[in-house]
């Protein structure tokens, strides 16, 4: 399946939607060629603002532009957007509920050779804990296009997590995304795999392996990590009675935590989390890193069988 990186789809979506939404402005911190906001800069130079290597200022300026009626998209790498500028995002963007969209690329271990300093494995946790912040993790180019428009239409702060490598297409132009709604990719009743972002197509591969072993897995794309789709999760827990989460993020504080927190209170069933296990990353090719950190289809299969055995 051909596909492109979610960051590239983000750049394309900005160009397309920039024509529709006049208030849309884009800010970057000297990474516009990597975050792909350079596409927007080329199309609408007067609405693009390079803030230089100053991520805290990036967030503050975006907040000020929102206060004056703009819909700013602030982009840089996920580690800097959510880590370095966390308190700016909390106090200056989220506390006043400013209409700022933080679209951060190079999230997760698949950043690859740049290594641990540039691989954000904590960004979902850092954004999810902030009151009023919506957290969206698109799985492919088509979903990214939908997510960008949903973020524009949503009034308030949104965090969009984007990846560096190309990902296979899961959807096509008919796909429609809504904040707070998960997408059921395939039905099954032995175990539910709840995935987000890059790990959605990995989850689909895991499902194929499980099917060959006679296990019927449901695959849910939980792009909307906050707010979670609670009804889809509840149904999955009731009907499958075992749940596995999969994300390119620490198992602490991300999608896995969100799902486990929800199910522990509302419908306790065995939950297993596939993710990075409280470690920093390192240099390597994305494929090697996914293998080294336990993020392959086989890892999901193993945890799925564990969850089934535990119920």
């Amino acid at each position: 399946m051909a596909g492109k990186a979610t960051r590239e789809a983000y750049g394309d979506a900005l160009v397309e939607l920039g024509a529709v939404y006049e208030e849309l402005v884009v800010l970057d911190a000297d990474l516009s060629k990597s975050t792909m906001t350079a596409k927007f800069q080329k199309a609408y130079p007067e609405r693009f603002f390079n803030i230089g290597i100053a991520e805290q200022n990036l967030m503050g300026i975006a907040a000020g532009m929102a206060a004056a009626g703009k819909i700013p998209f602030a982009s840089t790498f996920a580690i800097f957007a959510t880590g370095r500028a966390w308190e700016q995002v909390r106090n200056t963007i989220a506390y006043p509920a400013h209409n700022v969209k933080i679209a951060a690329s190079h999230a997760g271990i698949t950043v690859g050779p740049d290594g641990a300093s540039h691989q954000a494995l904590e960004d979902i946790a850092l954004m999810r804990v902030i009151p009023g912040m919506t957290v969206l993790v698109p799985a492919d180019a088509w979903e990214t296009r939908q997510v960008v428009e949903a973020a524009i239409k949503h009034k308030g702060p949104v965090y969009i997590r984007l990846g560096r490598p190309a990902v296979p297409d899961i959807y096509d132009e008919t796909y429609r995304f809504r904040i707070g709604e998960a997408s059921l990719l395939c039905d099954g009743d032995d175990v539910a795999i709840v995935a987000a972002g890059y790990m959605v197509h990995v989850a689909l591969s895991a499902r194929d392996i499980l099917a060959r072993e006679g296990v019927s897995a449901r695959v849910i794309n939980m792009c909307s990590v906050k707010p979670l789709d609670s009804s889809v999760l509840l149904r999955a827990a009731l009907e499958c009675k075992a749940v596995v989460t999969a994300e390119e993020h620490s198992i602490i504080g991300g999608l896995g935590s969100a799902v486990a927190e929800f199910l522990a209170e509302r419908c306790p069933v065995p939950v297993r989390r596939v993710g990075v296990r409280d470690l920093f990353g390192q240099s390597g090719e994305p494929g090697e890193l996914l293998q080294a950190y336990g993020l392959t289809p086989e890892d999901i299969v193993e945890e799925a069988l564990e969850a089934i055995r535990a119920r």
Binding site: E46, R47, N57, G60, A63, G64, A67, N91
Partner: peptide, 22 residues
Amino acid sequence: ASTGSLGQGLSQAVGMALALKL
């Protein structure tokens, strides 16, 4: 502007001034 955490007001003012100029 919601302020109190020092050092963050000038950035917000820059954002407002940029938007108003635009």
